[in-house]
């Protein structure tokens, strides 16, 4: 790891990775050991590594997989679910009661995997609803993001989780930071952080414990731990703007090791010192007249409007 001037063997790399994860959770006050954590899992390296790390650290972490129905031209969603199920049905997440990694079969906590199939729940797949509603200029990413955010928040609240954890890594964060900086999206910059607090009733606290890990570090952890993840990413993500920025930032990193980490940490420092405070306007939120979830405009929320939901029973995630 040139950015850290550190070289580790596989065993010690795993220990370092776990310790760094715990350190980030504590530093940014993400959650405590008494709180139940819901991990958004996609079958990819980041989310499965996150779930694995949290369980090894002794946190009460359950998983949420959202079946998007993206199976054309390749069965991306089906394979993602298969990898996620295979991970949790294996015994690699087993931990000792003191929270330290153990090779024994003693388990302190038995994690639950929640699976929400969008087509079964709401009647259409993500590509279908995006086509019907002509959202996203030919790509279903906008419909997908809206649906995932809603389902994650809703299920976390309904099931009593204190916090929702996602596997966003440093490369994800820095790519977004670069996009927002190039456009001086000061409002977005003010809200980009490792922890998004539950600013009002109806919103779950959201955290990113991997925000300081390079993407290649989470991939390395997955390989070292033998986690079988889906290598292919969503077919709709190919060629998107975020990946373009990731490519640019990787070229920068090659020439200047540590550049990505420095960019992000200095941003967090400036943000912490209030550099963007004036742009962090508290938005007036309303309750959706159908599902009760927070929404920026009176009436039905964007999710209920997109899915043509008229009754609260239709919006609930089982």
């Amino acid at each position: 790891m040139r950015q850290h001037k550190l070289a580790l063997c596989g065993e010690h790399y795993g220990e370092w990775f776990i310790a760094q994860t715990d350190r980030a959770i504590e530093k940014y006050k993400m959650f405590t050991r008494d709180e139940r954590v819901l991990v958004a899992v996609s079958g990819g390296k980041d989310s499965l590594s996150l779930w694995d790390a949290l369980l090894r650290l002794g946190y009460r972490a359950d998983g949420l997989y959202i079946g998007l129905g993206i199976n054309d031209p390749a069965p991306y969603s089906d394979v993602s679910l298969e990898k996620t199920r295979a991970f949790i049905e294996s015994d690699r997440w087993q931990v000792a009661s003191d929270g330290l990694p153990s090779s024994s079969s003693v388990t302190a906590y038995t994690p639950v995997l929640h699976v929400v199939d969008i087509e079964e729940t709401y009647g259409k797949t993500i590509p279908q609803i995006a086509r019907d509603k002509t959202r996203g200029h030919g790509k279903p990413c906008a419909a997908c993001g809206l649906t995932k955010r809603y389902v994650m928040n809703r299920l976390a609240l309904d099931k009593g989780y204190a916090v929702l954890a996602t596997g966003h890594n440093l490369d994800d964060e820095v790519a977004v930071l670069m996009q927002n900086t190039l456009r001086w999206q000061t409002g977005y910059l003010a809200r980009q952080a490792p922890v998004l607090p539950a600013s009002r009733e109806g919103l779950t606290r959201k955290v990113k414990p991997f925000c300081r890990f390079y993407e290649r570090e989470t991939a390395t952890y997955a390989l070292v731990r033998g986690i079988d993840y889906i290598y292919d990413e969503c077919p709709y993500a190919v060629g998107n703007l975020t990946n373009f920025y990731k490519t640019l930032l990787n070229q920068l990193e090659t020439q200047s090791p540590g550049a990505k980490l420095g960019f992000y940490l200095e941003f967090l420092r400036a943000r912490g010192e209030g550099a963007f405070e004036q742009f962090n306007q508290v938005e007036t939120l309303h309750e959706c007249e159908v599902c009760g979830q927070p929404t920026s405009a009176p009436g039905r929320c964007a999710f209920c409007r997109m899915w043509d939901i008229e009754k609260v029973s239709s919006a609930i995630v089982q």
Partner: peptide
Amino acid sequence: LVAVVSGGNET
């Protein structure tokens, strides 16, 4: 070579 960039990057 194992790709580490999420999102189907072609590089």
